[in-house]
């Protein structure tokens, strides 16, 4: 490490010691270090929505009653988008799980006036609920529409309030919330690894969605670690890997592997049009 990089790192740690969490140039972007990400293999996704339910339970997301869904105010940090391909009766459903892409170059971060959302030094796009003032500018700026606004204080009927996760804040009215990559689980693993005096093992961190995926379509990993299995998978399958809405230049932390299509040659033009190419 050169001396200027040392100075920069020292300055960054000084800033964090003072309790300041403003990202400095030394912290972002993070060319070496950890960058949490995910590999989503669409060939394995069956659209079963287990990830959606797991996320709902893990992260204290308010209940999505029918009325909330109808008025489009339901909160789903991860959602299965369903697209139809072809005409009935030869129609096929295509599923794509969409969650916060934890963009390296996030449109939501630049527009927040109060740093309620910023990039941390592990590649996470962090939402600080206490800072959020609810301008909803980030939700407008996000091309993936994965940011959700709390229109009211959430309520859980008895006895559901007893299953709230104590590691996760219950969000109040008037603020934005979104996928955190289960940052509470990441923290727990990091603390455990530190107390045991070792590095975090590959695959040790499991967000709720990845943990619950029956087909292992969602795999969480450090995408900067070339040794990790998912990173190797993405490398091996480079021919079908892509990132979502690549042309926005957001540098997402989630790599999608497109569906293996037995009739690929027939649909090739459509895929090229949809931007779902390598």
């Amino acid at each position: 490490m050169s001396s200027s990089a040392n100075e920069a790192a020292a300055r960054a740690s000084a800033v964090s010691e003072m309790g300041r969490t403003i990202p400095t140039d030394a912290e972002v972007p993070h060319p070496e270090g950890v960058r949490w990400g995910m590999v989503v293999d669409l060939d394995r996704c069956t659209g079963c929505q287990a990830c959606v339910v797991a996320c709902q339970a893990e992260n204290n997301i308010a209940l999505n009653e029918e009325q909330r869904v109808l008025e489009r105010r339901a909160k789903t940090w991860i959602r299965i988008e369903r697209y139809w391909e072809g005409e009935f009766p030869n129609a096929k459903a295509r599923f794509i799980p969409v969650l916060c892409q934890h963009c390296g170059n996030a449109p939501c971060e630049t527009v927040c006036p109060v740093w309620a959302t910023y990039h941390n030094n592990e590649g996470l796009n962090v939402q600080v609920y206490n800072r959020c003032i609810g301008t909803r500018f980030c939700a407008n700026g996000c091309p993936y529409s994965v940011r959700y606004f709390n229109f009211w204080n959430p309520e859980w009927p008895e006895p559901m309030n007893n299953q709230l996760n104590p590691d996760v804040t219950v969000r109040t009215k008037g603020i934005i919330e979104k996928c955190t990559f289960c940052v509470q689980r990441i923290n727990r693993v990091q603390v455990t690894a530190k107390t045991e005096g070792r590095e975090i093992r590959s695959g040790e961190v499991q967000p709720a969605c990845a943990q619950s995926c029956p087909t292992s379509a969602l795999v969480f990993c450090d995408i900067n670690d070339p040794e990790s299995a998912p990173a190797q998978l993405a490398e091996a399958e480079a021919g079908r890997s892509y990132t979502l809405l690549e042309h926005f230049g957001t540098d997402p932390g989630i790599i999608y592997l497109k569906k293996v299509d037995p009739h690929a040659e027939i649909h090739e033009d459509e895929h090229a049009h949809a931007g779902a190419h390598a």
Binding site: R20, T21, I22, V114, I133, G134
Partner: peptide, 29 residues
């Protein structure tokens, strides 16, 4: 129109108050 109007000073006034974060100068707001 903001979700928590009582926190208006955090973004209209360029001062870090007690939050340890100044307003974000990259934001048009």
């Amino acid at each position: 129109h903001s979700g928590r109007p009582w926190r208006t000073m955090y973004w209209t006034f360029p001062y870090d108050w007690n939050r340890g974060a100044w307003p974000n100068p990259r934001s048009p707001l």
